[in-house]
């Protein structure tokens, strides 16, 4: 297997604080890979280390077969990056921002012209090219940054929380662009997110990160399947009888009765619903309502850490704020 990124025993400490702890990870060429975890889990630190903006405390990594410690120049040429916080010059137009980027990467005039039009097409900002970025909406700025990350034909594109702070509609659009550029530009995408549905929808594989460690790594579906079955909940007219009847069947792993509500743990829930409906009909039980709940990555996170990602986030945000304050007092040196 050809790897786009190989990470070996990578660690990064800020003073006493361990942001990333002995991570081993291989990311395949051409995949969309997600680093999923709460804020402060170390996702951004991993990306910045891979992008040569931070030096690892120990361990090493290769990006597109270039050592991040010894071949910074080659690494930088192979990657594009979209940062979590805005990083465009709002006093320039969209086109000027891309032009700046292209010149810094040494593209000649002809290449610049062609490529700028190409990436503007990709994120559908052509009509905004000559407008100052300060007049862009948040979503447009994000798209411009994605376009800029692609300007120099990177092999690997890092997206750090690409849809943070965007509304649901814009988020969908950004997802569509990411899928499209992955397919059309054949670029390997590594993204961080703390949105479960984003990782689920976009990523071929996901690593769940908590406290600087990888706690689970697989395809989203495998992760979800690994932690348990689907839950079918039914509201029925005669719960007691029906549950006795159902207990004979092996395909029901677990059953709970709560007033009129019956909760069944099954595999492949969507296939089991018709069968259960049929059984209810034969038994003369009337079904008022039925719903199916598939485990989400949120459940996966809960399974591995014992808490939900949102609880975790609240406390991490608090910590981050304290850290930021402390570092500002020290003059921002870390």
């Amino acid at each position: 297997m050809e790897y786009a990124i190989e990470i070996e025993e990578l660690s990064k400490k800020f003073g006493d604080f361990t942001a990333v702890s002995n991570i081993n990870l291989n990311i395949e060429k051409g995949e969309i890979f997600g680093l999923l975890g709460p804020n402060g889990a170390g996702k951004t630190t991993i990306i910045k280390t891979l992008a040569t903006l931070l030096q690892p405390t120990s361990g090493f990594a290769e990006v597109w077969h270039h050592n991040i410690l010894k071949e910074q120049d080659a690494v930088r040429r192979s990657i594009g990056i979209v940062f979590q916080d805005p990083s465009v010059d709002t006093e320039l137009t969209g086109r000027e921002n891309l032009d700046f980027h292209a010149r810094m990467y040494g593209l000649n005039r002809e290449e610049r012209e062609r490529r700028i039009n190409e990436v503007f097409d990709l994120v559908e900002l052509n009509d905004r090219a000559k407008v100052f970025v300060k007049f862009y909406s948040g979503g447009m700025q994000r798209r411009l940054e994605i376009a800029r990350g692609l300007m120099h034909y990177p092999k690997v594109l890092f997206l750090d929380e690409p849809t943070l702070g965007l509304d649901a509609q814009t988020r969908r659009r950004v997802w569509a662009y990411v899928k499209r550029l992955n397919k059309e530009e054949k670029v390997t995408v590594v993204l961080t997110t703390h949105y479960m549905e984003e990782a689920d929808y976009l990523c071929d594989r996901v690593a769940i990160i908590d406290h600087g460690k990888i706690i689970a790594l697989d395809k989203p579906n495998n992760l979800k399947n690994a932690i348990g079955e689907d839950i079918i909940s039914l509201r029925v007219s005669d719960g007691g009888n029906f549950s006795d009847m159902l207990s004979k069947f092996e395909f029901i792993k677990e059953m709970k009765l709560h007033d009129d509500f019956l909760f069944l743990s099954v595999e492949n829930g969507e296939k089991m619903i018709p069968r259960i409906m049929h059984l209810a009909h034969e038994d003369g039980v009337f079904v008022h309502s039925v719903s199916l709940r598939k485990p989400t990555l949120e459940d996966v996170f809960l399974h591995f850490t014992g808490r939900t990602i949102r609880e975790q986030e609240a406390s991490a945000k608090e910590q981050n704020r304290m850290k930021a304050k402390a570092s500002m007092r020290m003059g921002g040196k870390r």
């Binding site: 903006l53 120049d73 940062f83 990083s87 810094m104 990467y105 800029r148």
Partner: peptide, 13 residues
């Protein structure tokens, strides 16, 4: 402050 320094610093310059 406005993040553009990151954009400059990550280029191979």
């Amino acid at each position: 402050q406005f993040g553009f320094l990151k954009e400059i610093m990550v280029t191979p310059v």
